[in-house]
Amino acid sequence: MRWIVTLGGIGSLRPAPGTWASIAALLLGLLLHRIGHFPLLAVATLAAIPLCLWSVGRFTAGMADPDRPEIVIDELVGQWIALCAPSAGFWLMGLASDRFPWPGWVAAFLFFRLFDIWKPWLVGRADRRRDTAGVLLDDVWAGVFAAVATILAAGLSHGIMGR
């Protein structure tokens, strides 16, 4: 279980294991996008959610606080949710899977880290749950907020600014 919840030991990296995990998730997400475009990334994201709940639940069974810093599989889920926004946009625009312009994935990464660290509103509420679902839910909400922010930034850049 430790290997799964730490993403192969990435959760042991210091400082900022969540950021290291987000970088690894971003790279893996870009690879998934390249191999199978948005549909593969979306399916992988949906498959990672029950894997996260199951593995974190097993790993933290009997622990008083399951939200341990070495558990970073939740960052993978949140980062992939954020990355789904530009991936879907590029897929819907008909871009080839080997094209994933850097502003989209950089924005998804930066917005996810912002919301995951800042923990506004629903992100913070989920983080305060201190249960297995809360370990995942704060990152799900951070990923959703990051996806929306990425879409808004793209709309601003491409629509209003005409780029």
Rank of each mutant, 00 (worst) to 15 (best):
159 G>W: 09
99 R>A: 14
156 L>V: 13
124 G>A: 07
141 W>S: 01
100 F>K: 08
127 D>Q: 14
116 D>Q: 10
103 P>M: 10
159 G>H: 02
154 A>W: 15
139 D>R: 11
155 G>N: 04
101 P>H: 11
109 F>Y: 14
136 L>S: 04
138 D>S: 06
130 R>Y: 04
134 G>F: 09
118 W>Q: 02
103 P>I: 13
110 L>M: 14
124 G>H: 07
135 V>F: 13
161 M>N: 01
118 W>E: 03
102 W>P: 03
102 W>M: 11
123 V>R: 00
111 F>D: 01
127 D>K: 09
105 W>C: 07
117 I>L: 15
104 G>T: 08
152 L>W: 12
97 S>D: 02
111 F>S: 02
94 G>Q: 12
147 A>D: 04
140 V>G: 04
108 A>T: 10
161 M>Y: 14
106 V>I: 15
110 L>V: 15
116 D>N: 10
126 A>H: 08
115 F>T: 06
94 G>Y: 13
150 T>I: 13
128 R>H: 12
144 V>E: 00
136 L>H: 05
113 R>F: 13
114 L>Y: 15
154 A>S: 10
134 G>Q: 07
125 R>M: 08
118 W>T: 13
126 A>G: 05
136 L>N: 06
159 G>P: 05
139 D>E: 09
135 V>P: 01
149 A>W: 10
152 L>Q: 03
126 A>L: 08
113 R>M: 09
103 P>N: 10
111 F>I: 12
111 F>L: 11
94 G>I: 13
148 V>G: 01
135 V>Q: 06
112 F>P: 05
105 W>F: 15
120 P>T: 07
95 L>S: 12
96 A>C: 03
114 L>D: 01
123 V>F: 05
114 L>F: 15
121 W>G: 11
116 D>G: 11
151 I>L: 15
116 D>Y: 03
161 M>P: 00
123 V>N: 00
145 F>C: 04
115 F>M: 09
136 L>C: 09
155 G>C: 04
149 A>N: 08
139 D>T: 05
138 D>K: 12
99 R>V: 14
118 W>H: 12
95 L>P: 00
127 D>G: 02
112 F>E: 06
128 R>D: 07
148 V>Q: 00
128 R>Y: 03
131 D>M: 09
120 P>D: 06
95 L>E: 12
160 I>S: 00
141 W>P: 00
109 F>G: 04
132 T>I: 15
137 L>H: 04
101 P>R: 12
149 A>Y: 09
155 G>R: 09
141 W>Q: 01
107 A>N: 08
128 R>I: 02
110 L>I: 14
115 F>G: 04
125 R>C: 02
127 D>P: 01
152 L>N: 02
111 F>G: 01
142 A>I: 02
154 A>E: 07
161 M>V: 15
143 G>H: 13
109 F>I: 13
141 W>L: 01
132 T>S: 01
159 G>E: 04
116 D>I: 12
94 G>H: 11
142 A>V: 00
121 W>F: 14
97 S>W: 15
